[in-house]
Structure formats: structure tokens, C-alpha cells
């Protein structure tokens, strides 16, 4: 089962929101809807890019074969990175915002220079679409997961065209990938979450059952949030693989939708195919909020790393959500 093939609607992805002068206060997000960039909706089918580390920028990628860097606060387009041959399926930024990596339908993983907008390197070797890319902590290695069911680790420092290592334990396409300082977390369509621990040299494989669409670490690094195609999010203990929480109510049966945790790990946020963004209380598991975004499918979302600020992507637009008091200021931008 290839998740990617099912995607028909894949709007512009969005990402992290800027920081404001206001200190984060409330946990609840006030649903304030804002078009990030009404004028530029040409990115028809896209996928949310990753969060920028400091939350000042928003990176989107989509079927127009480009990556775009936005200022989500003002909604201005900062730079466009073009060089992919097919749609761009995922992108990520390095810790110092100096470089970007992206992967897409042209089976290539591209390393970009943020400032110049030039392609630094292209890594080829995947046999299928690259569905997810990540930098490691120091942006020395790019990890890319592809629907060819492999994860490849590309060395940014050497000039070798071959990947440093190929993790081909997955039985189906790798849909989601996250990297911590010593771990590689990969969710695969074969229904397993694999965690490669470099420090202890072990591979932990947790069986979830249904195809996994998105995974992420909790911010404390103790848990993994797993969303799968059975419309369920699960919070698993990272070390034991036990189920800590289960979050249902949204609809996710066809598409590769994103999920994330709020900035303080208090809430679980997930896209839904019914045009809403769902919030659950992490501990109680109760649905806290269903935020209606629009009529389509909310394809992608990203949460600000430190502030209660959320970006969602639907159709060809990005929405930036933040608490009400802030909205008055930032809404105009």
C-alpha cells in the first residue's frame, strides 16, 4: 500500500509561525483565521514544510516544484527555491537556518543554500518518491525516507554520492521521519514505527497496525506521537512502546496528514480530512477543540516551537492561528 498514491488533494503546506513580542501566555488557541498569503496560491498541491527552528519563518513546498520561504507574520514571500523536477513533498531546515533540504517526486534529495537560493547538492539514489526529509541535529546528515521503503542517510560534508547508510528495514514506504540527537524515528506504511537508536545500536520496531502517516517526538523526548490511517493518534512510550494515550475523533483514512504536539506538550494536534484541526488534551485524551479551517482537507500543520501558534495548510493557502490577543496585532500582516 503506497500512501503517496492516494494523495489527490495536497494543498500548500505551511509551517511555523513567527514569534511576536508578546510572551506566550495562554494554552488555548483562539481560532483566528488568517490567510498567510492570499496573493500567492499558485502552489496547488503541496505539503507542509518543516518548522524552522526559531519559528520565524515558514517553509512551504508543493506541486509547483518549488520551495517557498515566508514570513508568516506578515505573509510575505521571502524567497522561492526552484530546482526540483517534480512536486516537492517535504522540506526541512537546518538548525541554523542556513540550509534547507527537500525531497520530492523526482526521487532526489536537494540541499539548498537559504541565502542564495542555490542548490548546493542533489542526492540521488532513491528508487521512489522521497516522501520525507530531515536534517540531523547539526545539519551534517540529511535523512530521507522514500516510498521505496528505505531511509537513506546522506552526508552533507563529504562529496560522496552514496548515502552513508541505508536503512531498509521498512517493508513499505517510509511516510514520516524525525531525528533527534541520537535517534532516527521512522513511520512506515507497513504499520510500524521504527526507532533506530544510534547510541545503543538497537532498532526498536513498534507495530501499530495501520499505515502510519505521521510521527513525531514529544518535546521532552519521552514519547512518540503516531498518527495512522485508522483515524487514530497514539501516544507511545518511547522506551517501552507502551500505549500512553489514544486520540480519536478526527478523520484520517486516506491522506497523509500531519500531527504534532503543542509547544508545551499539553495538547495533541492533528489535521483531519473533514476540514478541521483537532486538539486533544494530552493527558486526559479528551477532545479539546475542533478548529474548523475550511471545506477541504487540512493537509499539513505545524506548531510553533515555543509559542502557541499554529500554521495549517489547506488547498493552496496557509493559515496562521494564534491566540486572540495577539491576533489583533498580527492579523493585518
Amino acid at each position: 500500500m503506497l500512501l503517496e498514491n492516494r494523495r489527490c488533494v495536497r494543498p500548500l503546506g505551511s509551517d511555523q509561525v513567527n514569534t511576536g513580542p508578546r510572551a506566550p501566555r495562554c494554552l488555548m488557541l483562539d481560532p483566528e483565521r488568517r490567510r498567510a498569503d492570499p496573493g500567492r496560491e499558485e502552489q496547488e498541491v503541496g505539503r507542509a514544510g518543516p518548522r524552522e527552528v526559531d519559528g520565524n519563518y515558514c517553509l512551504t513546498c508543493g506541486s509547483d516544484k518549488t520551495l517557498k520561504l515566508w514570513n508568516p507574520l506578515r505573509g510575505t514571500l521571502l524567497r522561492t527555491y526552484s530546482g526540483h523536477g517534480y512536486e516537492v513533498l517535504d522540506a526541512a531546515g537546518s538548525f541554523d537556518n542556513s540550509s534547507l533540504c527537500s525531497g520530492g517526486g523526482d526521487k532526489a534529495v536537494v540541499l539548498w543554500d537559504v541565502a542564495s537560493g542555490q542548490v548546493i547538492r542533489k542526492f540521488r539514489g532513491h528508487a521512489g518518491k522521497v516522501s520525507t526529509v530531515q536534517f540531523n541535529e547539526e545539519a551534517t546528515v540529511i535523512l530521507s525516507g522514500s516510498i521505496d521503503s528505505s531511509i537513506r542517510c546522506w552526508d552533507c560534508r563529504s562529496r560522496k554520492p552514496e548515502p552513508v547508510q541505508k536503512l531498509d528495514e521498512a517493508r513499505d514506504g517510509v511516510s514520516s521521519l524525525k531525528v533527534s540527537d541520537h535517534e532516527i524515528l521512522a513511520g512506515s506504511v507497513d504499520g510500524r514505527v521504527r526507532r533506530y537508536d544510534l547510541r545503543v545500536g538497537q532498532l526498536f520496531s513498534d507495530y501499530v497496525g495501520s499505515p502510519i502517516t505521521c510521527i513525531c517526538f514529544s518535546r521532552d523526548g519521552q514519547c512518540t506521537l503516531v498518527s495512522s490511517l485508522d483515524s487514530t493518534l497514539r501516544l507511545l512510550d518511547k522506551d517501552t512502546g507502551e500505549l500512553l494515550g489514544e486520540y480519536t475523533g478526527h478523520k484520517n483514512q486516506e491522506y497523509k496528514l500531519d500531527c504534532c504536539l503543542s509547544e508545551r506538550d499539553t495538547h495533541v494536534v492533528s489535521c483531519s480530512e473533514d476540514g478541521k484541526v483537532f486538539f486533544w488534551d494530552l493527558v486526559e485524551g479528551s477532545q479539546a477543540l475542533a478548529l474548523p479551517v475550511g471545506p477541504g482537507v487540512v493537509q499539513s500543520l505545524a506548531f510553533h516551537p515555543t509559542e502557541p501558534c499554529l500554521l495549517t495548510a489547506m488547498g493552496g493557502s496557509i493559515h496562521c492561528w494564534r491566540e486572540e490577543s495577539y491576533e489583533a496585532e498580527g492579523g493585518t500582516g
Partner: peptide, 21 residues
């Protein structure tokens, strides 16, 4: 979830990968 769904394998990362990490 937990023991029943978990498999643990010995996995050898590449030396260079360890270095990069």
C-alpha cells in the same frame, strides 16, 4: 502495546553516521 508489539533488534549504525551524530 508494549512488549507484544515491540521488536528489538541489534542494529549497527555506520561509523560515519555515528560520527556525524
Amino acid at each position: 502495546f508494549g512488549k507484544l508489539t515491540r521488536d528489538t533488534f541489534e542494529w549497527h549504525p555506520d561509523k560515519l553516521l555515528c560520527k556525524r551524530f
